[in-house]
């Protein structure tokens, strides 16, 4: 990476990354999955869940971007997984063990069914 030389460069970089990351408007076929991986999540088994999700998505040929994030604050329900289907609002699932992770992929992502363990988003963002 070459250095960012000016504020204008930074602004351009932002638009570039913003487009790439398609925040809020997922591309048509891409499923975005975020796994809460702060100390609390990892201690509850988030690493294994992330690995499982990567393998399972590959296995089922789901076009997904799976990444780690920090803490959403719902410590009581760790591990947490957030899924954003194309053209939908993100949905957060709590208490995700392998069984629920499998259900997230097979029932929620593939079949589009509602599944157990959804945690309501309980905060406003700075842009609300």
């Amino acid at each position: 990476m070459s250095k960012v030389k000016s504020f204008t460069d930074l602004k351009n970089l932002k638009s570039e990354y913003h487009k790439k990351q398609i925040f809020g408007t997922p591309a048509e076929s891409l499923v975005q999955i975020k796994v809460g991986m702060a100390t609390c999540g990892i201690a509850s088994g988030a690493k294994e869940i992330k690995k499982f999700l990567i393998e399972e998505c590959e296995h089922q040929a789901i076009d997904a971007e799976i990444k780690q994030t920090g803490c959403l604050g719902y410590c009581y329900a760790e591990p947490m997984v957030e899924v954003q289907l194309p053209d939908s609002e993100p949905v957060v699932f709590g208490y995700v063990d392998k069984k629920r992770a499998k259900s997230i992929i097979e029932n929620y992502i593939i079949q589009g069914e509602e599944i157990e363990g959804e945690i309501p988003i309980s905060f406003k963002t700075i842009n609300d």
Binding site: K34, T69, L72, F123, K124, T125
Partner: peptide, 12 residues
């Protein structure tokens, strides 16, 4: 929606 995330805006 009683919470507003400012310091935690990017966490998660």
């Amino acid at each position: 929606k009683k919470q507003i995330r400012i310091a935690l805006r990017n966490c998660g």
